[in-house]
Design a protein around this nucleic acid. Structure first.
Lengths: 348, 348
DNA sequence: TTGTATGCGTTATCAA
DNA sequence: TTGATAACGCATACAA
């Protein structure tokens, strides 16, 4: 029905303008145009003006592929982001993007679906696109990924992921986070607690989280109750279902720890629906990876994970490598306890 | 401390292998190698094997920049995503990514910060990178953006954004969504209602949302109360604050409509903290853009917006254009009412 | 300060 | 089926 949008700006039947076109129109050489755009200070005022005018009139946009081919770099950083839509990754990515953008780099995102070892084909796509560096977001990366990166001499950093030996890695102290939650609960008199977290079979991070929690619990002489343990994907629905499953078993617990905001939200909804009052009959604590745990009803005690900070620091690590300062660093950021609630003392 | 990961795969002090290297090792021409990789069926078996072997041994990865330069396309689609971290965009992006990936395209994401007209520089970066098409996610795009796209003959689609005349656009029927909420509330006897939504000064979408809601409200003979109206950014904190502000005025309303999940979550937290029972004293309804409104406490009535579907359809529109079938289409997806709660009847 | 010419790694055209 | 070779658009070393 409607005509295609053809504003009359570009020459009616041609492809977009090139350096040569600009040079021609301005009556100079391509080299001069190139320099005018990249280092204007090396060009005389009158020439510069003529060139800029031609650029303007032609609506010239440089061809990045040609530039990349010539310069052997793309000013692009690739990021591999599993489970893009959920949890804390968006915030991490945004922080990363901002940090890199400040240095002139653009972020190229890829979200692999969970097919096993699909990461390598994603990584391959990134490498073919000539990314100058790669950020690995909290994924379980097959060893082959690191091999490919090494083979291509591509700088990279892992974010919120198990630190590999000698690899740039930015995360936080997982044990400290677990201890923070456990100490808080113990201080309020809780002895027997449950846990809803990620699948330990699928994720090294989930394994560490559970392990650290167990350690912290043992250290304080508490009990992690087997019948109040659930492993699931991350999400509202999943937290809801997991909490229902646990509640059916009527375990003898007074507190539940949730691995993420989404799980906590789902769990709280399930408890509410089941008429189990929080925190009077059951306290809920969580690892807050999304800055919204604080707004859940009822307010929960949560450990704020430094998500945004991870993104920033990872960006800086990447930039350091791109500048040639690439001593591998594993950096652990501090965690803090956000206590907005009257986490219940043990009920009678 | 640790040695850098240098597996012995690549030649110790060289840059990565090129077609020529592979050709040399396999004893064929570069043309043959190129064809072997792109159309193996046109190559004799023995040659093919020799080439593949060389590829393997050198760990050859094609140079995308060179390919793009030669082929004049990148198999890349750019997306401009405002307010990356919040609300419904991640789900939309993921759906878009999946749809495009199935057709061999990669998505290149850019998240402009809210600086005005920053979009044009973002778009410029995308165009320089040679994206074959662009997806505009629900942003207010300055007219200049469309001009740039037209000048570059770059296919594009707007998602969940005001339809521009003659432009590919995928959204949903905003008025129908508003009417769904209003009818539901009216059917439960509510007469006077409030609204927490986006800033109408900043966003055409917010303006339409408010306008449609007003229309639907008028049509049912209800009243949208001025003193129960709040405009704000989207987010938990913002919804929390807005609800508090409204509550202080003690408006004579029995229901509040929230523009998004995040706002609704914040509003519910505020009501809870203020001791205002939902839905006994105040009903809350929302536009559910994130599939989690249903899990909020207490459950709310919400209109599910077809976020994922927008992403899918937008991807398909883009692909259609890339294949040359580019009759502009404005597509409106249906909306549905999710009623999980006992949206309160009017209290006494 | 400006112009010339070469290389970047592919794809594609045209012969062989 | 394969090989040589010309684009592709830009940056840059070298000349002027």
């Amino acid at each position: 029905m409607a005509e295609p949008l053809l504003s009359s700006l570009p020459a009616p039947g041609a492809r977009s303008a090139s350096l040569a076109d600009v040079a021609h129109l301005a009556g100079v050489s391509t080299g001069t145009v190139s320099r005018t755009l990249s280092r204007p200070d090396m060009i005389s005022e009158p020439t510069r003006l003529r060139v800029m005018d031609a650029v303007e009139r032609l609506g010239y946009v440089p061809n990045g592929a040609a530039r990349a081919l010539s310069m052997r770099r793309t000013l692009t950083v690739g990021a591999i982001v599993p489970r893009f839509g959920s949890s804390s990754f968006p915030a991490m990515v945004q922080a990363l993007e901002t940090t890199l953008a400040a240095a002139g780099y653009t972020l190229l995102l890829s979200a692999p679906d969970p097919r096993p070892s699909y990461e390598t084909s994603i990584l391959r796509a990134l490498l073919e696109r000539g990314v100058d560096a790669v950020a690995l977001l909290g994924a379980e990366q097959p060893q082959q990924v690191f091999a490919m990166l090494a083979a291509n001499r591509t700088p990279f950093v892992t974010m919120w992921a198990p630190p590999e030996a000698g690899v740039h890695c930015v995360g936080f102290d997982e044990y400290a986070a677990a201890a923070l939650v456990v100490d808080h609960l113990a201080d309020h008199g809780h002895r027997r607690i449950g846990y809803i977290g990620g699948r330990t079979a699928d994720s090294e991070r989930a394994r560490r989280r559970l392990r650290d929690l167990s350690l912290a619990i043992a250290k304080r002489g508490l009990t992690l109750c087997d019948d109040a343990l659930a492993e699931t994907e991350h999400g509202f629905q999943e937290g809801f279902d997991a909490m229902n499953t646990i509640a059916q078993r009527q375990p003898a617990i007074t507190a539940v720890v949730c691995g993420s905001d989404y799980l906590a939200a789902g769990a709280l909804a399930a408890l509410d629906q089941a008429g189990i009052e929080v925190p009077r009959r059951l306290s809920v604590a969580s690892f807050n990876d999304n800055d919204f745990a604080a707004f859940l009803h009822p307010p929960l005690t949560s450990v704020r994970l430094p998500i945004r900070e991870i993104g920033e620091q990872a960006g800086e690590r990447l930039l350091a490598q791109l500048r040639g300062l690439d001593a591998p660093v594993a950096r652990a950021l501090p965690v803090t306890l956000m206590q907005r609630s009257s986490t219940g003392p043990v009920p009678d």
